[in-house]
Design a protein around this nucleic acid. Structure first.
Lengths: 255, 255
DNA sequence: CCATCTTTGTGCACGCGTTCACAAAGACAT
DNA sequence: ATGTCTTTGTGAACGCGTGCACAAAGATGG
């Protein structure tokens, strides 16, 4: 198959592309639904439709895991559920700590989908001393001062940050120092972490802004977003030249 | 489904790559912080560091917007803030409706970052009649029965779905029917929408599973990365093609 | 046992996104 | 004005991800 020259390409993730990893949970969810309906096997076409992806993409994704299908039949649902679960590391228990028990943190603690697959809310941590001891989702909130010990005692390797943006980096640093190597960040901040620590961010504001962009584009198909503006854009202090390039945006958008 | 008159490849949004659009909010956030500190200009290098991206990538991203920089100096912060805001459509008001006022929906309604940039929570909608009238974040919750009217009256074009997964598709359909063309989906479901409607999903469970994958990989760098398993995986119902106990997994694993 | 039919697994081509590296452009000092 | 120095803007190469299209594999029926 491969040339076999370099057995160690720059990709460290055991040959499974990141894009594929990101879709595995999607497949798993669809497969779990099928499993609950006691569907024995499923074709790539059916499963792809359920997961909202292309069937060829799905087959290629599965091919990275191995040959788990049967030609002419499809994939065995139970078997595939197990294989993907194992590949994603969901066959083991993942204690998770949530730091910042405000509205969002409390909501996540109560979120059912959290504990659904191997993930378990092991600790809730907040900087407000008044919150210490208060039960949220059946778990007593603990104070930030004990963060280090809490992480260690519970063997937490995944941390969720739901603090205000100003505190996020500091919390992140402390989590990492305590041994956390994966962080899910809900605070609208760019976190800097040492090598070997994974950070994924969930940013409501960014998602909305992306939607707004497309929304504007949809709505403004005859109302051009003009570079020059009837309002008063904060002009460059020294606007040496207005707009040099001509092709950047048409003066009139074709309707 | 009256929408979808113009079907666009969706690949090209006025020449600005999707990946660039997704980063513009990041730049905007960093620029806003600089603006509040009254920093007049910033170089691509500095801004890139603040946004957590590569400087070359940032310059290329900005080049899609036009030539807003000054060689030898950098970018004018205020001017760039305005340009990106305008490009993202944040110079106008975006009324948003949140459907499903549970823990998460309420948290989002209270979320400060929501109203920060042009977005305004115009309506909260829930299917529970008992919630109707209850104020959440200073806004009275309205019943799903009035969804259509609420969307129309407020001119809502962006909807946020925070319902249980079972209700998400139905809510989505109703939102679209009422005129919503952009949806931010927090429910762990694959939504199917007609052409011309944008859907972005925020899925806590998926993010955690991706983290777990990498976490497992990190932890098991000396553990057996082999597909075979000492446990008892749920076996295929028809063992006809059960790969022998000797060579069940291809011993050859790429890389 | 052979023919046929279904569905997987994958080689290949293409397009998007990222990164490098550098020439052009402008600021600033002399 | 001229030279130098800084930083942008971008051409080009590269790598990753996606989708097509088809051969191989196995089930199924005669």
């Amino acid at each position: 198959m491969a040339t076999g020259r370099t057995h160690r390409p720059a990709t460290r993730s055991r040959g499974i592309p990141e894009a594929t990893v990101a879709r595995l949970p999607l497949y798993l969810r669809a497969l779990t639904a099928l499993s609950e309906r006691s569907v024995p096997t499923v074709s790539s076409e059916e499963l792809a439709t359920a997961a909202g992806v292309n069937s060829a993409k799905l087959r290629k994704d599965f091919s990275y895991l191995g040959s788990y299908g049967t030609r002419g039949v499809g994939y065995d649902v139970e078997y595939l559920v197990y294989q993907i679960s194992r590949e994603l590391g969901l066959t083991q228990d993942w204690p998770v700590a949530i730091v910042g028990i405000g509205n969002l943190g409390a909501a996540l603690a109560n979120y059912g989908g959290f504990a659904s697959r191997g993930f378990r809310v092991a600790a809730l941590i907040d900087a407000d001393p008044a919150m210490a001891g208060t039960p949220v989702a059946g778990i007593a909130v603990q104070h930030t001062d004990d963060l280090d010990r809490i992480i260690s005692d519970n063997g937490v390797s995944i941390g969720v940050i739901t603090t205000p943006p100003g505190a996020a980096q500091q919390v992140c640093d402390r989590l990492v120092a305590a041994g956390v190597t994966s962080i899910l960040n809900f605070a609208p901040t760019v976190l800097s972490v040492p090598e070997g620590v994974d950070v994924r961010k969930v940013d409501l504001s960014i998602e909305l802004q992306i939607l707004a962009f497309h929304e504007q584009r949809k709505a403004g198909e005859d109302a051009p977003p003009e570079g020059d503006d009837p309002e008063a854009p904060p002009m460059r202090a020294t606007p040496a030249s207005r707009k040099g390039p001509d092709g950047d945006m048409p003066a009139v958008m074709p309707a």
